[in-house]
């Protein structure tokens, strides 16, 4: 039983490795499930025991790449970044991991992550969105906490309970739209080494943080970065 589970996992990993290779070489559209099965050394039918469709497979790859990106983010972040820098770093580490599929995956990204319709492809798409937004919420909460500490220390008051990020609905939708906009821009960016995306991402994150802060100045207390 244990061996079977291990063998299954090995096959699954082989399918994923073959798909990564083919998607990055030929693109999603021009890769067939038959190609993937052939590359992985399994029968075409067997593939469907693991992944119900090519799109689900692709979304799994995206989700894993973004998980790796988040691990990179955790390794690189020092905790001393400004909130816009932290948000920038969080996205850019994900883009690095997605880079091999940049031009080939836009269809799947668009379909799976669009705010217009829930993903038909797999639970992975929902997980990607949830994980990403949770990470963003954490960045904002950490930043708010740091600001509170600085302020309270400056005022000589004891540290308060940790503030939880009360991310409001509008802010998160605004963020997600910006993020998808960056992804769409990046996947079509013709500039050398996609340097336009870097500038665009930098400014998009600044825009987002400005929007949160401007909400604060109008005494909208829902923003997570109240300072």
């Amino acid at each position: 039983m244990r061996v079977t589970a291990q063998a299954k996992e090995q096959t699954r990993q082989r399918i994923l490795a073959s798909s990564r290779k083919l998607f990055s070489q030929k693109g999603l559209e021009r890769t067939t499930t038959r190609d993937i099965a052939g590359e992985a050394g399994i029968a075409s039918g067997t593939l469907f025991n693991y992944f119900p469709s090519k799109e689900v497979l692709a979304m799994t790859i995206v989700a894993e790449a973004l998980d790796e990106g988040r691990a990179d983010y955790a390794a690189k972040a020092t905790g001393q970044e400004s909130v816009e820098e932290a948000l920038f770093l969080h996205i850019v580490t994900g883009l690095r991991r997605l880079a091999p599929y940049r031009t080939s995956m836009n269809a799947i990204l668009e379909r799976a992550m669009s705010p217009f319709s829930p993903s038909p492809d797999s639970a992975d798409a929902d997980r990607v969105r949830r994980d990403h937004l949770e990470a963003v919420a954490e960045i904002l909460a950490n930043h708010a906490r740091r600001n509170d500490q600085t302020r309270n220390q400056a005022a000589g008051e004891p540290e308060p309970d940790v503030a939880t990020a009360d991310l409001n609905f509008v802010a998160m939708h605004l963020y997600w739209s910006l993020y998808l906009g960056v992804l769409a821009f990046w996947s079509r960016d013709q500039s050398d080494k996609q340097e336009h995306t870097l500038a665009m991402l930098d400014q998009a994150m600044q825009l987002f943080v400005d929007a949160l802060n401007s909400g604060d100045t109008e005494e909208n207390t829902d923003g997570a970065t109240s300072h």
Partner: peptide
């Protein structure tokens, strides 16, 4: 004008 994370990406690209 550039925060380090942006600068790092630019250096990496170059």
């Amino acid at each position: 004008p550039m925060h380090f994370s942006l600068l790092r990406e630019q250096v990496r690209n170059e």
